[in-house]
């Protein structure tokens, strides 16, 4: 099955790079992203690029956003461009198609962000290192990798599920945008809406908690959600249903 998954990923990547223009244009877009996150921002932030704990938040969100930009197209795009039925009539198994699509989106978000991180470290060390090797602490490094992967997995799982149901790419993109907005703003406004006598104990709980423990709890929660979304997508992927939708 792995060979088939890689075949689908190969096709998805080829299409991704030629999404709006030539292959060169697609590569330029990727280089632009890597340039911003791997060179420009590290140059601006200096040593904080490695030392600030707030970076964790950014690295958790970046792959999620990146995946969101491509995953809506996975099935809705095939349906819209009338290529889905031909794909379903091929020898590829349900899981090869599904995992190939998710894998392509995941590798795009996680892969590009990873390149950005590595390049960012090189940039910070070259410009701001002053003979000292600047690296993330092991806990931060593990947290970044874990959050990046799980964040990308969350967007890939949710995105494929949305794309399987959507009748057009635009509909899938709109649904994903709303989901991202909810994910961003519900916690912020939710906390503000809490009764005053609840806010203080919650704030204390977070301030007194071990940051590492909190990070691993967050990752565990994300992992459970990711697995749930994967199972839901597998259950939703039915050839007959996809053809008749």
């Amino acid at each position: 099955m792995m060979a088939d998954v890689l075949t689908v990923m190969w096709k998805e990547w080829r299409e991704l790079l030629r999404q709006r223009e030539s292959m060169r244009g697609g590569i330029m877009r990727i280089l632009l992203f890597v340039g911003v996150f791997g060179v420009f921002l590290p140059l601006q932030m200096g040593r904080e690029w490695v030392e600030s704990p707030q970076l964790l938040m950014m690295w958790a969100w970046v792959p999620l956003f990146l995946v969101t930009t491509v995953v809506a197209d996975s099935f809705a795009g095939e349906r819209e461009r009338h290529t889905l039925e031909t794909l379903l009539a091929s020898r590829l198994s349900d899981r090869s198609i599904l995992f190939g699509k998710m894998g392509a989106a995941l590798s795009y978000g996680f892969g590009l962000t990873s390149i950005g991180i590595v390049l960012g470290l090189v940039t910070v060390n070259l410009v701001h290192g002053k003979g000292e090797l600047l690296l993330y602490s092991p806990t931060i490094a593990v947290s970044i990798i874990g959050l990046m992967f799980l964040g990308a997995g969350l967007a890939a799982g949710a995105g494929v599920l949305v794309s399987l149901r959507a009748s057009s790419v635009r509909q899938a993109q709109q649904t994903m945008s709303i989901a991202i907005m909810l994910l961003l703003f519900v916690p912020i406004y939710g906390v503000q809406a809490l009764p005053e006598n609840w806010k203080m104990p919650i704030a204390k709980l977070f301030m007194n908690a071990n940051a590492t423990q909190l990070m691993f709890i967050a990752m565990a929660v994300l992992a459970v959600i990711d697995i749930g979304l994967l199972v839901a997508a597998m259950a939703r992927f039915k050839r007959a249903r996809l053809i008749l939708d």
Partner: peptide, 12 residues
């Protein structure tokens, strides 16, 4: 199978 639509990936 060549179905109702050609099923070609036109970006490729």
């Amino acid at each position: 199978a060549l179905l109702e639509h050609s099923g070609l990936y036109e970006r490729l």
